[in-house]
Amino acid sequence: MIRYLPFLIEAALLVYCLIECIQTDVPRNLSKTTWVFVIILLPIAGGIAWLVAGRPERRPARDVPWPSTGTAGFPEYERPRRTSPDDDPEFLAAMGASDDKHEQMLKDWEAQLRDREHKLKDEPRDPA
């Protein structure tokens, strides 16, 4: 069993580096096709070369555990404060203006409907 260990390590390194190379968008230093051939033709040296010089650099966007949220990495007492829309006078003023606009649109629509109804009442009907 021990004499197969180098072969297993070589095969695992080959498979890992090959899969990682194929899944990479833009490798460093060489093209993706060249890296695949290097990894396949030189199994140990190519795999090590890929790990050292081929993998793209991975830099985290921010140094927080969960970068997808705006408050990640902050204890609750240090989180940036956000005002709610109910406390923002500009937001409330914009809402009032929006309501006035919608009220006017609704009145115009009702007037158009009334006009259509009067036209339908005034038109003679065909007994079909």
Results as ranks from 00 to 15, higher is better:
residue 1 M to T: 13
residue 2 I to A: 06
residue 3 R to F: 13
residue 5 L to Y: 08
residue 7 F to E: 07
residue 9 I to L: 14
residue 11 A to I: 05
residue 14 L to K: 03
residue 15 V to N: 02
residue 17 C to F: 02
residue 19 I to V: 15
residue 21 C to K: 02
residue 21 C to W: 00
residue 22 I to P: 00
residue 23 Q to I: 00
residue 24 T to I: 03
residue 25 D to I: 11
residue 25 D to M: 05
residue 30 L to I: 02
residue 31 S to R: 04
residue 33 T to E: 03
residue 34 T to C: 05
residue 35 W to E: 01
residue 36 V to E: 02
residue 36 V to N: 01
residue 37 F to Y: 09
residue 37 F to P: 01
residue 41 L to D: 00
residue 41 L to G: 05
residue 41 L to M: 04
residue 42 L to G: 01
residue 42 L to I: 03
residue 44 I to G: 00
residue 44 I to H: 02
residue 46 G to H: 02
residue 46 G to E: 00
residue 47 G to C: 00
residue 50 W to C: 02
residue 51 L to N: 00
residue 51 L to R: 01
residue 55 R to T: 01
residue 57 E to S: 10
residue 58 R to V: 08
residue 58 R to K: 12
residue 60 P to R: 11
residue 60 P to G: 03
residue 60 P to Y: 04
residue 61 A to F: 11
residue 62 R to Y: 12
residue 64 V to P: 04
residue 64 V to G: 06
residue 66 W to G: 04
residue 67 P to C: 10
residue 68 S to K: 09
residue 70 G to E: 09
residue 71 T to A: 08
residue 76 E to T: 13
residue 76 E to M: 08
residue 78 E to Y: 13
residue 80 P to A: 06
residue 80 P to H: 10
residue 81 R to S: 08
residue 81 R to M: 08
residue 82 R to E: 15
residue 83 T to K: 11
residue 83 T to H: 10
residue 84 S to I: 10
residue 88 D to N: 15
residue 89 P to R: 10
residue 92 L to M: 13
residue 93 A to V: 12
residue 93 A to W: 13
residue 93 A to K: 14
residue 93 A to Q: 15
residue 94 A to S: 15
residue 94 A to Q: 15
residue 94 A to D: 14
residue 96 G to M: 13
residue 97 A to K: 13
residue 100 D to A: 11
residue 101 K to H: 10
residue 101 K to R: 09
residue 102 H to N: 13
residue 103 E to G: 07
residue 105 M to K: 15
residue 108 D to F: 12
residue 109 W to Q: 08
residue 111 A to P: 03
residue 111 A to K: 13
residue 111 A to V: 11
residue 115 D to C: 08
residue 119 K to M: 08
